[in-house]
Design a binder for these strands. Sequence first.
RNA 1: GCCCCAAUGGCGCAGUGGAUAGCGCGUUUGGUUGCGGACCAAAAGGUCGGGAGUUCGAAUCUCUCUUGGGGCACCA
Length: 599
Amino acid sequence: MIREQLKSHITRAIQAAQAAGDLPPFEIPAFTVDHPRQANVADYAVSIAMQLARIAKLPPAQIAQAIVKRLELEGAATVELAGPYINFRLSPQYLTKQVSAILDAGKQWGNIDIGAGKRIQVEHGSANPTGPLTVAAGRNVVIGDTLANALSAAGYDVQREWYVNDAGNQIRHFGESVYARYAQQLGRDEPFPEDGYKGDYIGDIAKSIIEVDGDKHLSLPRDEARRTLGKIGIDAIMDSVRASLLRVGIRHDNFFSERSLHESGQFERVLPILREKNLLVEYDDALWFSEDGSPIRKGETRKPRHDSTDAPAETDEVVNDNKGAVQVVVIRSPRVIAEPAERPTYFASDIAYVWNKLVLRGFDRAIYVWGEDHQGDVPRLMAVTKALGLDANRVVLLIYRFITLMRNGQEVRMGKRSGNIVTLDDVVDEVGADATRFVLLSRTIDTKIVFDLDLVKKQSDENPVYYVQYAHARICSILRKAAEEIGESRLEIGSKLPGEISNLKSQTSLYEHPSELALIRKLLELEEVVDLVATQLQPHHLPAYAQSLATTFSAFYRDCHVLGEAPEVTAARLRLVRATQATLANTLALMGMSAPEKM
RNA sequence: GCCCCAAUGGCGCAGUGGAUAGCGCGUUUGGUUGCGGACCAAAAGGUCGGGAGUUCGAAUCUCUCUUGGGGCACCA
């Protein structure tokens, strides 16, 4: 990456200046290489001279001068002093060379190696397997999948996992619901459970069970039949979930069963770690995790640690406080103790799960993608991670805000239990997979997305999805035409260019027009974007970049004719167009979108 | 009450402690006999919610207040 290179050049220059006595000895502090806000000022800027002013006890401008004096950039960039700022402008020769580098890298262009093969797990999706994949879950999987793509491009060894919540109360309700529909369809007068799932898909599942198994489950004891049908139902749901995921280009490496944590005994083996530290507390017939091991007393409300007054409130409940408070969470309720393995709390599973991820499977980092409804669970997972003796920095919890779906100018209300759901499939049917992914990625995860179906469906300039893809299609059109006119056989990314064009590689200053140079600069940003997304875990930078890239290409397209110019100009511009195509296609691929050749 | 997140042109949003705060939509005015007009250019539009602090330097960090959203189950 250019930034890294500039950084090490600066560092070496400072050291050289120190060795020569132009700067006093000191340890070089951390500094950054920035893009100036005004692009016409410079490509990159370094403001380290201001940071050093105090340390070196010299005026910033003088420090900057001393650094610049020792800079050796080998023609890659020109340096300009602007007071205390050291500004860099990449040279046309350097930029020209980068076009070749991009073409050589092809589909690998944009890949960097900040991950150094470290193992990261991205857990995303993980919606309850009690119904089809909803649009709400769509944001989860699109964020997770895109991050996984970016992390992979950044050199991490990434595993994509879906946590199947196949234990607990909701699953019991689900099993009861399937059983009720099953029995009803076989003519029995079975009441539908009050907490049941009312969606039509439950009836469909029951119907398909009847087709395969007939009425044989009716002869079983009711509880057993409910459990059996629940399991069959979950399998059916997960099959449909996988099919829906595939439609938006998402494939998980692993589906991890919550139930397995208990059935394999992993949970029971982790518990003693907490017990030895006296962090398990009995209270009111239940088993609790208490972050500081303090007892739980009736009528107590937990206060933040720093609150020394500590006057017990008059409430009859224990509050699960968030950060800054002592975490106190129930692990096993009396019901669970009475009926082990059937209904552990979600938190009980979380304990074993984080242990499984970090210790048994040894991921360097575990990223969880959670909806905002789980925001309150963050502190307790962090607390128990620390209690297990694990480095909390290895656990990253990303909390995204929900989406609001709009149709005909009205909000579409959803609820899985009521059966009033809009599935991801519905939305994909309506606006397409690419638009769905783009919209769900386009904002920071902290921002609520209003997904207006009518607006997204409009393939207009109000919709950036098509603007980006249009740029790619237009490039393909130019290349098709070039193939006819110049006789290039096939212009795929990564394929070698025919002789006449590739011979021009060695020339140094092919690109001179400002729009050409601006486009190359924009292409080079891809590595920085991958770095940014992977480091900050913020996928929204990708759609922003894609749009900006498309805009920059449009300016080039307007200013620089490709075909019908002097042969060497056409050849050079074709190479640039191809490099743009590669960059755009790779960016779209990171977002899980297609790069259409025609629209 | 406690916790989390947000507040930036008319609307929707970017913004990495650095120079004159950007982008899209909308508005106004222009542009195409040319490789795809699903296009492009220019202009207008900002006390970055209020206040204090840290810093050579704050939209960005800290504190505080205000407003809005969400979370605080022996549910998942």
